[in-house]
């Protein structure tokens, strides 16, 4: 549904990407091919270049080498099809704006320069707020929101863009249980619509539960593929190096393994789907 006309073209294709901040490489010769319609988690230690990779895909950084293609074309020509959910802490929540104001910003891209949002955009913003359960708070000043509510506002703003690819930078960071569930449901809805989601994710334990593909990144790409195939101790050890304690992984396996049988988790533990 997302892209009938270029079936088979990967949603995102990154080739030989190297990005350096001054002296230090943040990404080193990274390749990544994300098929259309998967939920991909990017995991890795701090400083592994996860946010940098998102920004590079968005075309916000100039790489030293390599290229990024979105549906087979340079990202500049595909901006409308990408939507971005930045880290919550990246903006100033004291900004004088209401929840609705912020969500409407998602429509600015298609409006282009100078044209103002009108009633149609307003309706769409409200619908998106409905989707994340925030409609009643649409007039609320954004500084009065909780962390989870702020995250949901950002998600609603991304939904308004009606894109095919959603890039999310730590959407689960510091949110309450309610919001976490809301985000998971949203991710599944997006997948059901054939959208592609690429999210930086911190919590290794929930990777198999929430996502069907995973990329392990530590400046270089360590592994990338369906969770069932690449999300194993060997790769995690390579990714996290000495910093990855055996105990953490043991706990993670213990806690996720028995839950796979519950219905909503088996539907999202998409190893089989990703491999298909």
């Amino acid at each position: 549904m997302a892209d009938r006309h270029n079936e088979g073209v990967p949603a995102v294709a990154v080739q030989d990407l190297t990005v350096a901040y001054r002296e230090r490489p943040a990404l080193w010769d990274v390749d990544l091919t994300v098929p259309s319609g998967v939920l991909l988690a990017i995991v890795g230690p701090n400083g592994a270049g996860k946010t940098t990779l998102l920004k590079a895909i968005l075309g916000l950084l100039r790489p030293v080498a390599g290229q990024v293609l979105v549906f087979g074309e340079p990202v500049e020509q595909q901006r409308r099809r990408i939507s971005y959910v930045p880290q919550r802490g990246s903006v100033d929540w004291d900004f004088p704006a209401s929840v609705l104001d912020v969500v409407m910003m998602g429509t600015y891209g298609e409006l282009g320069w100078i044209r103002r949002p009108g009633r149609r955009e307003r309706e769409r913003a409200l619908a998106a707020l409905d989707q994340v359960g925030m409609r009643e708070l649409s007039d609320r000043q954004i500084s009065q929101l909780s962390g989870g509510q702020q995250q949901r506002v950002f998600l609603a703003r991304a939904l308004v863009q009606a894109a095919d690819i959603y890039l999310m930078d730590e959407p689960f960071q510091g949110v309450d249980a309610l919001t976490e569930r809301a985000i998971v449901m949203l991710l599944q809805q997006l997948r059901a619509q054939g959208k592609t989601v690429i999210a930086v994710h911190h919590d290794l334990q929930t990777v198999p539960e929430y996502f069907d593909w995973v990329m392990l990144l530590n400046v270089r790409r360590i592994a990338c593929g369906p969770v069932a195939q690449v999300f194993n101790e060997h790769n995690l050890r390579l990714t996290y190096g000495g910093r990855f304690a055996m105990a953490a992984f043991a706990r993670e396996v213990e806690e996720t393994a028995p839950t796979v049988v519950t219905p909503d988790r088996s539907s999202s533990g998409g190893g089989a789907r990703g491999a298909a």
Partner: peptide, 21 residues
């Protein structure tokens, strides 16, 4: 790279990526 320390290999010093471009 396997040792997870590419930046050390490249620049001769360890540490995380700092600063934004």
């Amino acid at each position: 790279n396997k040792a997870g320390d590419v930046s050390a290999y490249l620049t001769g010093s360890g540490g995380e990526v700092t600063g934004e471009g």
